[in-house]
Structures are given as structure tokens and as C-alpha cells.
Write a protein that binds this DNA or RNA. Structure first.
Lengths: 315, 315
DNA sequence: CAAACTTATACTCTGGATGAGCATATCCCC
DNA sequence: GGGGATATGCTCATCCAGAGTATAAGTTTG
């Protein structure tokens, strides 16, 4: 914020870019929206702040998402502002990134928007069917090479970092540390945006995006997973009514982890975030499930009590 | 981020402002640095991004802090980007706010920098000597008036929000919810920046700052208190060596809460964040205290294990 | 139609972390 | 050397998260 009207040397007016990481859950798959930025190169929906119409940053993002996707966004949250001069070719571009949550629905438009599984971008993040193949197959060997070529003094530090980041050794996998993991893989040149190292495994892990967009997506997934535990954000990707099993399914999809069913129910119940509707879902294939509704009043009670999952507890 | 070089209609170039909330601890008082922006009006150190010298946003803040205060900053963290068009008089100003931590030392300069107690700005946030006077004296009565004039449907919602935000009724005081509290007080017109309501208490609670700077400071304190629990940030305001009591004192100052001494030690010990130096502080006035040093290696182990205070546990 | 299976829901047990108190050690000051 | 103050070590109760077991209420199948 300027100390005065800053009349003199025109201090660095910068273009204000906006990026949106739009996330939804389709069945059991968490998805994010990409657009075609070049032929055969996808990236996040992006645009610029337009001073003539956007009163706030969030309104700018809202306009941008509307234009590129037409999706009705149910939740916005500012993620981070990127301002490195060398971040994009051609000089400074300041970009404010937002996380947006929507209920899943189809999209089409001239920018070729499409839904991508989050785990297409981050194949090592989905532990619902046990340790992901990408971990054992690519990450662990690469980590071992990285440890092998460490300076003697660095070794224990590298080792500890690797174990904590990827939950190896004694450490437990922490679903939230998405960005840490992406950045370590970037250092290891295991993801496509980083130029592959000689003799490294060919194409790189996961689907690359333009520029640093996959990094931004990692930050978004990290933020979302973190928030699941202490803010009621899941409900923004769910329909009006849902069974508790569906709620758990969606949380598991986003967290990339299976949860203990009974304990999940206990927590949801004690958090007082949902109320029964009296209706029942008959299409379960077993005993019908009661349908619940999010008690949206809790959003007014500002310190929203959260889902109760204090730590995303895995099995 | 631009889809192309954006040559055409010059999409909304904005001035990029920078704000810094510089925090340290002086004895048992957490302090933040203000500068004189107008005669008799203090605010946060602010400036603009300078494209010719600042390669990154953080470098811009570093330069700004250096110019206005000369303080050596030990930790930077981006807080939030404010972009409302009507935020400051005279059109859009985009401002990126940063939290900065320094070891305490004197400052002087032409902008009249001075250290202010955080609790001069937020008198209701310091619970170390029991419930703060400002709570009982001003906040609670104002909350009761606010509840009294609620619509019938709103009452329970308002009540729940008031209780959760300020730890009244069954709810416990949560040291982290600094911003929630400030914003509620702003709505109640209890803080000086908001125009006083008719019949409201005169001057408003706490020291006001320019524009929305006190709100930014609240966001900073909230972030810092939150981080105390899971990232080793306290050490950035402490000297190289310190006793465990001093460490606890500083945490208590920032958290605005007294902690159980024995449990604090247990946690610090198990978190493995500090190591004994073998030296002893003789000036304790009692049994000498062993001096410890932060194991700075843990910062390399990226998912920094945190202080162990999973919740800032009060008595 | 009954057995087998699937899914939902309820209750119990256990280990660990957290909150709180008691006890001891080592200094200073009088 | 006793009292006060601070540091440090240990124990106990409580709560909660993780994990297991049991029951209810449907669908599918022989």
C-alpha cells in the first residue's frame, strides 16, 4: 500500500494475473479443471484483473471462472501471490492464485476446458488402494539415488527430509504435505516441468501443466486437504443432501486415504455439522442410508467448528 | 498470469504495494513495528515493489524493511494480498502483506519507527494475567447489546458466533482466532477504525492504525499463533542460546496465554527441536538454567516437525 | 422364501497424548 | 543454615483417536 499517492517515479505497475484451481469430486475421483493454453499444453484457467469491472480480486476470479468455464463456484479462497520476475517468459507477472470449489458437472467452452483427475497430476498422492505404484516404482528409487550422491554432511538431513516428506521409515504419510512432496520431486527432476536429468526415467511422473501451474495445483490440494480437518469445506463439492457414506467417500477422495468408517461417523456426529433430512437413499445396494444436509448456519458461526477430523486419520 | 504477452488493451496494470508486519518479543511483551504515516497517525511499514531491483516479492519486502527500519529480518512469510478497489482512497491499490520476525533491538529512522506492544493494538488478546479487562469491561457488554438487538431468527446464530469467537459460555478461548475477533469487534464498531455507533463507548478499543493496517496486523498475529503450534518459528525471535524458561516465556508472550511449565518441557523435549549447549544461565534468581540452542538442521528436514504444542494448551 | 451378501449404524476396548499436580535439585539472599 | 525462588523430573487422571465387534435393514440369489 502506497505511503502517498506515489506520483513520482511510477513505481512498478504490474499486470495482475489471476489463476484458479477449480476442484470438484466426480464419483470417487477428485478432479481439477484445466484449459488448453497451447495446442497439447494444458494449464489452469487464467486471466487478468480488469480494473473497470472487478471491484475485488475475488470478483476478478469469479469473472474469469465464469468466462472460461461457466461453472458456479461455491467457495473461493486465496492461495498465494506469485511475483517472481522470471516466473514467466517476458518479464514480471504478478499472479494471485485462488482455490475454487464446485459441485461436479460437465463443462465445455472455446478454451477446451476439461476435468482431470488430481491423481493424474499427482499419482503418488492416492493411497486409497494401498501405497501408490508411482512411489515404489519411481519415487523411492530416485530418493535412494539422491541419498547415494549426497555429501557426507548432508546425508542425515536428506534422509530425514525424504522420510518425513514421503512417510518412509518410521514417519507416517501425511496427506497434507502435497507441496513439500511436489517440490522435492521437482528438485529430483522427477516431474515433467523440470528438465530430466541424464539417465533419469524418461517422461516424468504425472501430467505436467504450463509454467508453474502444477505447483500451484499442489498448493491448492495441500490447502484443501488441510482445511478438510478444521473447516467445513467438503460440503461445497457435495449436493444438497447426501448420505454419510457419500460424505466419507468424498473426504477419502480428496484426502487420498481411506478412513475408519465408524470413527468417521462418530466425529461427524459430534461435530454437529449435519442434520438428518428424514429421507433415505434406497440405491445403496444394501441397507438404505439416511440422507443428511449440511447445517449451513454453522458458516455464520464464524469460527466454523470444522469437520472434527482433527488429523486425517488413516487406518 | 497472462495467456500471452498481453500487448493489446493493457489489462489493468496496478501498483503493487507491500506491507510488513514486523514482530519481535521484548522481555515478556510481543511487539510490532509501526511507522508514522501522517502526524499522529501510525501504520505499518509500507512501500512499493520496484521492478528494477526486486526480483521477487520477498526481496521487495526485504528492501522495504531495510529502508524503513534497518532491522535484520530472520523469517518472512506471505500473509495475504489485498486488492479491493475501495480499500484506500484514490483507486485500486494491490498490496501484498508479509509477516516478518526479528530479534528485538532498538530502531530509529526518519519515518519514526517505533515498537508497539501487540496488546496495545489488541488489548483483549492477552490472557496471561487472567481474562483481560477490555473483555469484561467493553467487549462483553457490547456483545450483549448486539445480541439484544438481533432479529429472532438471528439470535442463536449470533450467540453461537459470539461464544465461539470469544470463548464465552461453554466454548474455550482459542488464542489463534485473532482475526475473527477483530472482525467481530469491527462489526460491533468497537475498534477505532470503524466509525463509532451512537451511544457507543467513546474512543474505541486499542490503538488504531491507518487504513486497514490493524486488520493486517491481526491477520499476522493469527498466522503467527497458528504457526507456533506446528512450525518452529519462535526461534526466529530468540537469541542463539536460551533457557527453556525463556523459550516458554516467549511462546507465552506471543500466544497471550500461560502454559503449564512441566508439560511444555515435555513437549519441547519430545519434539527434538533443541539441544543443550552445556552452558548455564546463572542470572535466573534461582537454580541456574541450562542454555539450549535451536537445532537449525530441522529446517532442512522440510516438513519441520513443529514445536509439539499441537494445541496451544492453556491451564 | 430363505440363505448369502451388502451396506448402514451402534457400542466397546485400548493406547497414547494432554492437562494437572507432587516432588526434588540447585541456586541466591538473609 | 533456613527461606525463597527457580529449574527439573516424575506420576496420575482424563480424554480422544484408532481399531475391533455386534446388530439392523435392505438386495441378490438359489
Amino acid at each position: 500500500m502506497p505511503s502517498g499517492p506515489a506520483a513520482h517515479a511510477d513505481p512498478a505497475r504490474a499486470e495482475v494475473g489471476l489463476n484458479a484451481v477449480i476442484i470438484s469430486v466426480d464419483g470417487t475421483t477428485p478432479k481439477l479443471l484445466t484449459v488448453e493454453r497451447q495446442p497439447h499444453e494444458d494449464g489452469l484457467p487464467s486471466g487478468h484483473l480488469d480494473d473497470t469491472v472487478d471491484r475485488t480480486l475475488e470478483q476478478g476470479v469469479r469473472r474469469l471462472v465464469g468466462r472460461e468455464t461457466g461453472l458456479p463456484v461455491r467457495y473461493f479462497e486465496q492461495l498465494y501471490t506469485f511475483g517472481d520476475r522470471n516466473r514467466v517468459p517476458g518479464g514480471r507477472s504478478l499472479a494471485v492464485a485462488y482455490l475454487a470449489l464446485v459441485r461436479h458437472q460437465g463443462v465445455q467452452g472455446e478454451a477446451n476446458p476439461s476435468w482431470r483427475s488430481c491423481y493424474e497430476l499427482f499419482p503418488w498422492e492416492d493411497w486409497r488402494d494401498g501405497p501408490p505404484a508411482a512411489l515404489e516404482g519411481s519415487v523411492v528409487p530416485a530418493l535412494e539415488r539422491w541419498l547415494a550422491c549426497a555429501q557426507p554432511g548432508e546425508l542425515s538431513t536428506r534422509q530425514e527430509r525424504a522420510e518425513l516428506t514421503f512417510g518412509l521409515g518410521h514417519a507416517r504419510w501425511d496427506p497434507v504435505r502435497v507441496l513439500d512432496r511436489y517440490e522435492l520431486l521437482y528438485e529430483l527432476r522427477l516431474v515433467g516441468e523440470a528438465a530430466p536429468v541424464d539417465g533419469g526415467p524418461g517422461p516424468g511422473l504425472g501430467l505436467p501443466l504450463s509454467l508453474d501451474h502444477r505447483r500451484i495445483a499442489a498448493a491448492a490440494l495441500e490447502r484443501l486437504r488441510g482445511k478438510l480437518a478444521y473447516r467445513p469445506v467438503v460440503f461445497e463439492v457435495l449436493p444438497e443432501t447426501f448420505s454419510l457414506s457419500r460424505l466419507q467417500q468424498v473426504v477419502e477422495a480428496l484426502a487420498g486415504q481411506v478412513l475408519h468408517k465408524q470413527n468417521f461417523r462418530r466425529l461427524v456426529g459430534s461435530a454437529n455439522l449435519v442434520e438428518p433430512t428424514g429421507e433415505w437413499d434406497q440405491r445403496t445396494g444394501g441397507r438404505p442410508a439416511e440422507l443428511y444436509r449440511f447445517r449451513r448456519e454453522v458458516l455464520r458461526e464464524r469460527p466454523a467448528p470444522g469437520l472434527g477430523l482433527r488429523r486425517l486419520g488413516g487406518p
